[in-house]
Simulated scan of single mutants.
Amino acid sequence: MTTVHPVDEPAPLTLPARLTAPPRLTQRHPSLLPAAMLVHRARRRTRWVRDGWTGQVAWARRRDEDDLPVRLVQHGSLLLRELDPGQMHLQHNKVTNLRLAASRLDGIVVAPGETLSFNRVVGNCTRRKGYVDGMRLSNGSAESGVGGGICQLANLVHWMVLHSPLTVVERSEHSFDPFPDRGRVLPWGVGCSIVYNYVDLVVRNDTEHPFQLRTWVGDRYLHGQLRTDVRPEHSWKVEARDEQFLRSEGRVFRRNEIWRRVIDRRTGEHVGEELLKSNCALVVYEPGPDVEVIDLD
C-alpha cells in the first residue's frame, strides 16, 4: 500500500502583533509625548554615564583627517527627492542639516573593541548649532522639525556597515512606509529612525582592525565611505526578499525580509547568508496599479 503524506500548507499571512495592538498612550494623548520624550532621554543619559563609569562600553571618539588605506564601501544618496512642491523648502533645509551632521561624523575612527553611537557623535540638532527646520517623519507623515533629515545620514552609515564585518547593536526603523518606490536605490526596510538621544544607530567593532567613516555633502549627493587598514577576506551583498503588500481592515501594509549574503572575496563563492530583519509597516500612500495587494480580510 502506498502511504500518502499530507502536503504542508503555507502558513496564513498575518500582521505582527505590534501593528494590530491598540494605540499607545502617547498616540491616544499626544500632549503626553513631550513628557515621555524627557523620560526616555533621561534614561539614555543615565545609561551613557553608567557605561562610562563602569567601562562597559568604550565609545568611539577619535577623529582622523588622514584616510585609512582601504576603501571598503562607498555610497552616495540623492539629496533632493521629487515630492510635494510645497515641501521642497524642507528638502533644501535638510541639506543644511546634513552638511552639519556629516561634518561631525566625518573622520571618526571605530577602533577594535569600540562602539559608535550616532547620537553621541552627532549630538542634539538644535537651532543654536545652526540646524534649521527640515523634513522629518512623524506618525507616517512628513512634517517640519529642527534638524529634520539627518535620518538620511544614519541610513547611509547603516547601509555601509551592513557591507562590513562591523556589528549593528541598535537600530530602529520607521514604522511607516511614507513614499512610493520611484527612484529607490536601496531596498525598502534598511533605513533608520533617529531621535536624540534615545532612538539611535549603534555599531560595535568586534574585529582586530580599525574602521573609519568619511561623510560629506556634495552638489547632488550625500556621500559616504567606510575605510579600514586591511581588506577583509569576505564581501557582503544585502538584498530584500519576499516583498508583499497586504490589505487589512482598509489599511495597506508592506512586508519583506532583509538578507545578507557572505561571499569569499578570493573565489567569489557564496559561503553563507543571514536574515537581518523582517519588516512590516503601514503604507501611507496608495500603491499604484502595478502593485499587487493581497487582501487579508
Rank of each mutant, 00 (worst) to 15 (best):
W59S: 07
L282Q: 12
R18D: 11
N256T: 13
P85N: 10
D106M: 02
S175R: 13
L105I: 12
S164P: 11
L137K: 01
D290S: 03
R227Y: 00
D51Y: 04
G183A: 03
T126P: 06
P22E: 13
R182P: 04
V190E: 15
L38G: 14
R247M: 03
G250W: 06
E143H: 11
L78P: 06
V199D: 14
Q27V: 07
H174Q: 01
R261S: 14
S77W: 11
R231Y: 03
T215K: 04
G288L: 02
G268C: 04
L80I: 11
D219S: 09
L68K: 04
D133L: 07
L201S: 07
D181Q: 01
L83I: 14
C125V: 14
R41G: 10
A111K: 11
R254K: 09
S117R: 01
T207M: 05
E273F: 05
R44V: 14
D66R: 15
A102I: 03
Q56P: 00
F176Y: 14
T2K: 13
L166I: 04
S235H: 12
E170R: 12
P16T: 04
L222C: 05
S117I: 00
E292K: 02
W53T: 06
S278R: 13
P22Q: 11
G134N: 05
F253H: 09
A102L: 02
L296E: 12
S172V: 11
D177L: 15
P16R: 01
T20F: 08
W53G: 04
S77Q: 11
L13E: 13
S278H: 13
D67Y: 15
Q87E: 14
A281S: 12
R136I: 15
G76S: 14
L80K: 09
T267W: 09
D206Q: 11
L186F: 07
G107S: 01
V121T: 12
L213K: 09
C125R: 15
T46W: 14
E243W: 02
W159S: 06
R99C: 08
L100M: 03
R136G: 09
G189H: 09
G224A: 03
E257Q: 15
T14N: 08
Q212D: 07
H40A: 08
A102Q: 00
G130N: 06
D295V: 01
H40L: 10
A60G: 02
L213C: 11
